[in-house]
């Protein structure tokens, strides 16, 4: 990509209530130069999951347009294994390290507009981290999940230690479309995505609630306060929250 995309983007992160920021195991990254953005959610029941989630998003947004990316996971898995190999651990830590770390993931790649000023995008998702594409106050795409009822305790996960030979991304996790100026994309981890889809199913426009807070001078404070209110009202599951909002 020659020049950065004309995007404004903002990332917001909030740990699960009762947890410290050190214990936050989601991750996010964005790179306007490659047009790539991603969020990932390290699985609670695995160890070194936050590290794996971070490697995934950072690895994904480094990939340049047009580059074959089928093997992008391999160096990330190597890196994870190297980073955790020498950490001294008790019996349970060793077991969990042997099991590997797990994360859900959604990544968005935006391409520069062509001569007709039409931009294209593609997305990759594993599990229940979600992407929403909004145009003129209408939800165009929800991916990969489209209903709040589709969230389970056991989503598909990307593992840091592949068990199957040549294990790659499960089939059916790709989506593509076209973008135009003033479109918005939202990437989010499961708790917020489930809230988003539930609100949408109720005929509401959750992107407006988010956009209003994103527009405030202290957007992170506004979003944090809003999430805590939603948690108090049991509308938002108590989990790590991560949001990447992109305005074109």
């Amino acid at each position: 990509m020659n020049s950065p995309l004309p995007v404004r983007w903002h990332a917001f992160a909030l740990p699960k209530r009762g947890h410290t920021l050190d214990e936050y195991e989601d991750a996010h990254a964005g790179n306007p130069a490659t047009g790539r953005f991603a969020v990932a959610d390290g699985a609670t029941e695995s160890s070194f999951a936050g590290k794996w989630a971070k490697l995934l998003v950072e690895g994904y947004v480094r990939i340049e347009e047009g580059r074959t990316a089928t093997n992008w996971l391999k160096p990330l898995r190597q890196r994870w294994a190297e980073d955790v190999a020498s950490v001294p651990l008790a019996w349970y830590g060793e077991e969990k390290r042997d099991d590997g770390a797990f994360a859900t993931f959604v990544g968005l790649a935006l391409k520069q507009p062509d001569a007709e000023r039409v931009g294209r995008w593609k997305a990759l998702a594993i599990g229940d981290s979600c992407l929403f594409h909004v145009r003129k106050d209408r939800l165009l795409t929800a991916f990969p999940l489209t209903s709040a009822d589709a969230f389970t305790q056991q989503p598909s996960l990307l593992d840091s230690r592949p068990r199957l030979k040549d294990a790659v991304v499960p089939v059916g996790c790709f989506e593509r479309g076209k973008w135009q100026a003033d479109d918005r994309f939202f990437l989010m981890t499961d708790a917020l995505a489930q809230w988003f889809l539930r609100r949408h199913a109720q005929g509401l426009a959750p992107w407006q609630s988010l956009a209003r807070r994103l527009a405030e001078p202290k957007a992170d404070v506004a979003l944090g306060t809003y999430c805590e209110e939603l948690r108090d009202r049991k509308e938002l599951r108590n989990d790590d929250v991560t949001l990447v909002a992109i305005c074109l």
């Binding site: 699985a43 099991d99 499961d190």
Partner: peptide, 12 residues
């Protein structure tokens, strides 16, 4: 028992 995202039983 749910303490957060589970890893499939087949892993262990």
């Amino acid at each position: 028992i749910d303490i957060g995202t589970k890893v499939a039983a087949t892993v262990r």
